[in-house]
Simulated assay, not measured.
Amino acid sequence: VDDLSLLVDALIQADAGLVEVLSGDGPFTVFAPTNDAFAALLDALGDDYHSLDDFDTHEEKALLAKVLTYHVVAGAAVASGELYNHQELPTVQGESLFAIINHGVDIRDKSGTDANVIGADNVASNGIVHIIDKVLLPQEVIDILNPPSH
């Protein structure tokens, strides 16, 4: 299993009851970024964020929670074989992800860069986990990280 310890750390750091939510009844579909994916996000965020511990203000924890809830589709445990091209996947965060099926399964977020599903169909007691190679970003978070210039 790819190392997901940073995902667990992020869920704890966001401090929004996400660990409890995800250990609830479900069913859930979770797209779980690897440690390398989180490291790449931290690199992209620049000098203010060297580790998840740098998400330490109320606003930053809220931002992290928005990112994490964007990785969760509630109400369904969707296996990779059940996904179809351009399928809309509404997330707990409120915005949708889109499945892209083309020689494998990708998940498209609002950044325009697809995440590859690199470990599909990990069945949990309350749903299914697909391991992905990128942290997914909703538009709400992209706007906060890169405010539109006026």
Rank of each mutant, 00 (worst) to 15 (best):
G127R: 07
G81R: 12
D36W: 08
E82M: 15
E20H: 11
G104R: 01
H71N: 03
V1Y: 10
D109R: 01
I128Q: 08
P90D: 03
P147T: 07
D48G: 15
A120I: 01
E59V: 07
Q93S: 01
G119Y: 14
Q139T: 06
N126I: 03
L18G: 01
Y49P: 11
V30Y: 00
D54S: 13
G17T: 05
K134P: 10
G104N: 01
N122Y: 12
Q139F: 01
D53N: 15
I144W: 04
G24S: 09
D53V: 12
V78G: 05
I100Q: 14
V78F: 06
E140W: 00
P33Q: 04
L136T: 09
S125L: 13
E59L: 12
V117M: 07
V135S: 02
Q139W: 02
N102H: 13
A99C: 05
K134C: 10
G119D: 13
A32P: 02
D121I: 09
N116A: 15
I100A: 13
I107G: 03
D9C: 10
L63S: 02
I132G: 07
D143E: 13
D47M: 07
Y70R: 09
A65K: 01
A39H: 06
Y70G: 07
L7T: 07
D15Y: 00
A99P: 04
E82Y: 14
T69L: 07
V135M: 03
A32E: 03
T69W: 08
V73T: 05
G94Y: 04
A99R: 01
Y49D: 09
